[in-house]
Design a protein around this nucleic acid. Sequence first.
DNA 1: GGTTTGACCCTAA
DNA 2: ATTAGGGCCAAAC
Length: 109
Amino acid sequence: MPRGQNLYFRIYNAVRKIPRGKVATYGQIAALIGSPRSARIVGWALRSLDPGTKVPWQRVINGQGMISIENMNCPKEQQALVLRQEGVEVMQRDGNFWVDLGKYGWQTD
DNA sequence: GGTTTGACCCTAA
DNA sequence: ATTAGGGCCAAAC
């Protein structure tokens, strides 16, 4: 198995720890796994996820609080829809979706 | 083996 | 306020 799998496992585990109705940023996840400067790895890990994964990758967004996904099997619309079902208020901004991290941001601490 | 890219973040001008 | 550049680690070519 690739040595990066351990890191992937950490990422998935951290993402699973995100409470329902909250959203976390790549930076936070990266910080939780011990690499605050490796937010990109989180993106890679989530990108490699399967469509039927149990990991709530939908709760992970960028530091600006908006969804970056573009050409994935799951369109941003559906992601925003799921977040709404989770209880997160998603605002639309010119085709892109915006979430208020100040209210729905996951407070790790 | 090296080079490029990536669902990012931070700092500087 | 915005735009540009560097950095980080892992996977794909």
